[in-house]
């Protein structure tokens, strides 16, 4: 278990002070895939760097399985860092080393015998799907492949926790998806706790169970991903769940309006409107929609308007008959 307790961090430069983190408390349970999301400059990287003490918090404590990481001596801290490894947006591979030697790097630091290290590194390259790239150099690989090597390297010392700072931000959507799948697989098969830093809601949706929303150095909201998707409470959460803005939708002028709330329904938005037209002969106007797929389920809401009272009532009856969908008049 990782407990961040009342972490604060202020950066002072000659001409400014930035309160990067203000009293941040987060608990991450073992085996979890925990997302930390926020806008650029929200303090995400600073927070994740506090976990392995690359950045020392001014106040507060980081406990990993009850051990106060901040109070460790440098040698013990280095051992802890072998258990809490990290992957980065820029991959950060050693460019003058082959992929195999990159994966062997943490083992070399730990003093593992060369033959054993090599064997382990080859297995890990297999795990991340790059068994044929052992002798290639990072510059010869695509971004996605480089991140796979970085993941293999991060796994070399059998960590308990994997920290991912914007690990997919430099990749195209397809590659990003593949890397996230690999991370999920690692989490499931090896039971490694994963902390994912991102500014993209799609990343949280795709792999995280729990999420904390960081806003200007503070935790705006945290909890289960599904809860925050269905009932975002804080402004920061609403901004992320409804990027187009919830309020704007409401100003649309129409007397007969409904808000359809997806609380994990199998049906996505558009087929619902199609069914409404086909089965009931009702035409609904979509004023706005912010639905998100989490796994194969839809969350979010959709604002519809109708021509008259009667078709609105019919629509209510129809929508209420569908599981996991609720309707309210607005």
């Amino acid at each position: 278990m990782i407990e961040l307790k009342n972490i604060s961090k202020t950066f002072r430069t000659s001409d400014s002070t930035v309160e990067a983190l203000k009293n941040v408390s987060i608990t991450v349970n073992d085996g979890d895939i925990f997302g930390i999301i926020g806008m650029s400059g929200a303090g995400k990287s600073t927070l994740v760097r506090c976990i392995n003490m690359l950045e020392r918090p001014d106040e507060g404590a980081v406990l990993i399985d009850g051990v106060d990481v901040g109070s460790l001596k440098s040698k013990d801290l280095r051992n802890t860092r072998r258990e809490v490894t990290m992957i980065f947006q820029g991959f950060n591979l050693l460019m003058q080393r082959s992929c195999l030697n990159n994966v062997m790097f943490p083992l070399e630091l730990a003093g593992v015998k060369k033959a054993d290290a090599k064997k382990r590194a080859l297995e890990l390259l297999e795990t991340v799907g790059l068994p044929d790239k052992a002798n290639a150099y990072p510059a010869q690989l695509s971004g996605g492949q480089q991140q796979r090597v970085a993941i293999a390297r991060a796994l070399a010392t059998d960590p308990k926790v994997l920290l991912c700072d914007e690990a997919t931000s430099a990749l195209d959507p397809k590659t990003s998806h593949a890397i996230l799948s690999l991370i999920r697989e690692i989490n499931e098969k090896l039971g490694i706790t994963v902390i994912i830093i991102t500014h993209q809601m799609s990343v949280i949706e795709e792999v995280c169970n729990n999420v904390a929303i960081l806003d200007h150095g503070e935790v705006a909201e945290q909890g289960r991903v599904v809860d925050i998707f269905t009932h975002p409470k804080s402004q920061a959460a609403k901004r992320l769940v409804f990027p187009e803005g919830e309020q704007e939708i409401l100003v649309e002028n129409s007397a007969y309006r409904l808000r359809v709330i997806f609380g994990g329904a199998k049906a996505a938005g558009t087929p619902l409107i199609a069914r409404l037209a086909k089965e009931k002969g009702i035409e609904a106007n979509i004023l706005g929609a912010s639905t998100k797929a989490v796994g194969d389920k839809a969350y979010g809401n959709m604002l519809l308007s109708f021509a008259d009272e009667n078709s609105k009532d019919l629509a209510i009856a129809f929508l209420k008959s569908i599981e996991d969908i609720s309707v309210e008049e607005v």
């Binding site: 392995n52 690359l54 280095r78 802890t80 860092r81 990290m86 950060n92 790097f105 943490p106 630091l109």
Partner: peptide, 20 residues
Amino acid sequence: NIIEMAQSTGASPFQIITKV
């Protein structure tokens, strides 16, 4: 960033010099 990677991997300052 590579130096930071090495630190996060548990490298000592001396190892950072000689291995990175």
